[in-house]
Design a protein around this nucleic acid. Structure first.
Length: 388
RNA sequence: GCUGGAGUCGUCUAGUGGCUAUGACAGCAGACUGUAAAUCUGCCGGGGUUCCCCCAUCGUUGGUUCGAGUCCAACCUCCAGCA
């Protein structure tokens, strides 16, 4: 399905955006989803530990899948034979596929990649075989997967990269974006461009302007979810990017994030987010809960509880009293603690449901606040008495 | 009662004369941002404001030895077989 964005309201004081993504099918039928939106991540054509029905119950708009992983396994041609990704994984709402660009970054630790102008040489982590991913190849794979939104193949440089490297990287990412766009053939699939530039205002501005000049169906801000310790730098990178993006198109902040990040980045003009955090935290026994905590570095962090902790052994209350998710409506912390201690799959499922629903509920609250021009108050309430 | 075997951390386990006694599980915490993550890290005999220091420790007691979880003896407990 092809996607368009409609900006419906901007918060009077902060400028935060409320809008709708409208997906149009080949037969002319449409599906609409409101923004701000959080997209659960289903890298390998599944949101880990959840059935499509369980994902659906958290009321998401779009979900993510990954080009790189599906290319390696089962292979894009198998997915195509299955009738496309939607059919293959039984997910009949929109799917966005990441391009594999992030894997260029995340696989870099073991020096199993080599970035050239033509593309990126990988060494498969599955069997050690040599792989070569190019912008054209990434788009071709995404065409075959038949996701609704394809992402340009970009380079996501590490936070430690210097300005000189970043400048070259941004330029190359632009050339890659143009090459990808040139071979993008699927008329029922949208293609998004990605703004890079690290923490530098000039590079972010330039990257945004040049990417917009190429012309895409939507725009992403990338390369911000790879610095552990500096939220201000992350927010600033967003601030340096969004002003140069067209207001009548959607903005997607890739890989983010924590509840506080969603709140702060919507304020800075972002519409959609994705993050592995809710599902990964869930599998590791953690549940997101309301409120924030201030860390030793004075950074506001998401508030969460670790169900592995012995103190929940006899806690017969739900994770959150006011949460409407399946987990909170039916199960206690004591039960979740028990399942997690026993390493039962159902515990991971229940926590995944809660954590995803938690972030989606947060976006729902943000939408209501924006529509009512109360987003500044919403932020204040979000921080509560611990406000930095 | 006799004969043989065995006792090491909460549990299982390595260790057969040499200095800090393995490893796993359990337990207690922590980390996680476009998923090489249902993963990883730390602690896990006692005490000290946990760099580090002190004390204890391989069933018990004694012995051999420069040195013992390891060899010897007695005892205790458990297991197997025979009565």
């Amino acid at each position: 399905m092809k996607v368009t964005y409609k900006l419906l309201h901007q918060d009077k004081t902060t400028g935060a955006r409320y809008g709708k993504l409208i997906f149009t099918a080949p037969d002319g039928s449409t599906q609409e989803y409101e923004t701000p939106m959080f997209m659960p991540v289903g890298t390998q054509a599944t949101v880990k530990t959840l059935s499509p029905e369980q994902v659906k119950a958290t009321k998401p708009g779009i979900i993510l899948a990954n080009t790189y992983h599906l290319w390696l396994r089962p292979g894009e041609n198998i997915v195509k034979k299955a009738g496309g990704l939607h059919q293959f994984m039984n997910w009949h709402s929109p799917i966005l596929t990441d391009s594999g660009g992030y894997q260029v970054f995340s696989l870099a630790h073991n020096k199993k990649k080599d970035i050239t102008e033509e593309g990126v040489h990988f060494k498969s982590e599955l069997d050690g075989s040599k792989l070569f991913l190019t912008p054209e190849k990434s788009i071709e794979i995404q065409n075959k997967l038949d996701s609704d939104i394809a992402m340009s193949f970009d380079e996501c440089p590490p936070a430690t990269a210097d300005e000189r490297y970043l400048k070259n990287s941004v330029e190359r990412t632009l050339r890659w974006a143009a090459r990808g766009k040139a071979v993008h053939k699927n008329p029922h699939q949208s293609l998004f461009g990605i703004v890079q530039g690290g923490p530098h205002q000039n590079l972010r501005k330039w990257s945004a302007e040049q990417t917009v000049k190429l012309g895409f169906d939507g725009y992403a801000v990338g390369g911000v979810a790879n610095d552990d310790e500096n939220k201000d730098a992350m927010y600033q990178a967003v601030e340096y990017s969004t002003p140069y993006l067209p207001s009548n198109q959607v903005r997607y902040l890739m890989g983010v994030g924590e509840p506080v990040d969603l709140v702060e980045c919507v304020k800075r003009g972002i519409d959609i987010f994705d993050c592995v955090s809710p599902t990964r935290l869930a599998r590791h026994g953690n549940a997101l809960v309301a409120g924030i905590k201030i860390t030793t570095t004075n950074e506001p962090k998401e508030n969460r509880i670790n169900l592995k902790n012995a103190k929940f052994t006899e806690d017969f209350t739900p994770l959150e009293h006011d949460c409407d998710c399946y987990t909170c409506k039916n199960y206690t912390k004591a039960y979740l603690h028990h399942l997690i201690k026993c390493d039962e799959a159902f515990g991971k499922t229940l926590l995944s449901i809660h954590n995803i629903r938690f972030l989606i509920r947060l976006t729902e609250k943000m939408r209501e606040a924006i529509k009512a021009d109360r987003y500044a108050d919403f932020i204040q309430d979000f921080y509560g008495p611990n406000q930095p």
